[in-house]
Computed example of a mutant assay.
Amino acid sequence: MDAPQITLGSINVEAADPNALATFWATLTGGTPTSTGDSVYLPPAGPGGFAMFFQPLTGPRPDHPTIHLDLTVPWGTRRQEVDRLISAGATKLWDVLDEHPHVRWTTMADPEGNLLCVAEHPPSS
């Protein structure tokens, strides 16, 4: 059997304010959002990037998120990126710096409370 030829097309997010949340994520990813009526598409900023699609919230926000994004940054830049995300409107929740030898990360929330982690992995020897 051949391996599946599946790729990630887009991360879809329901938002109370799709335009504002897309603008926040555009600051993080470097993409340029395009409004399509009530929804907003944020294309990948370049090779290896990811697309996002923001649409109006259709029901109450869950009390506990069941999914979050793990974003990876180069070793030694996590603190700088966390500060950049805070200045863009994210909230820092906690750091995990010594639980695993192969990764350090900071858990954050975007302006609407969606969780994301900013992780750095040490260089290979």
Rank of each mutant, 00 (worst) to 15 (best):
M1D: 14
D2M: 01
T7M: 09
I11Q: 10
V13W: 14
N19I: 15
A20Q: 04
L21Q: 02
L21D: 00
T23F: 12
F24Q: 03
A26C: 07
T27G: 15
G30H: 03
G31Q: 03
G31Y: 02
T34L: 12
T36S: 11
T36R: 12
D38Q: 08
S39K: 03
V40G: 01
V40S: 02
Y41N: 07
P43I: 02
G46D: 15
F50N: 07
F50R: 08
M52I: 10
M52A: 08
F54Q: 13
P56C: 15
T58Y: 09
G59W: 06
P60F: 11
P60M: 12
P60H: 12
I67R: 15
H68P: 14
L69Q: 01
L71H: 08
T72Y: 10
W75C: 04
T77S: 01
R79P: 06
E81Y: 07
R84H: 12
L85A: 10
I86S: 04
G89W: 04
W94Q: 05
V96C: 00
L97V: 00
D98M: 02
H100C: 05
A109Y: 07
D110L: 11
P111T: 09
N114Y: 13
N114L: 12
A119W: 08
P123Q: 07
S124D: 10
S124C: 11
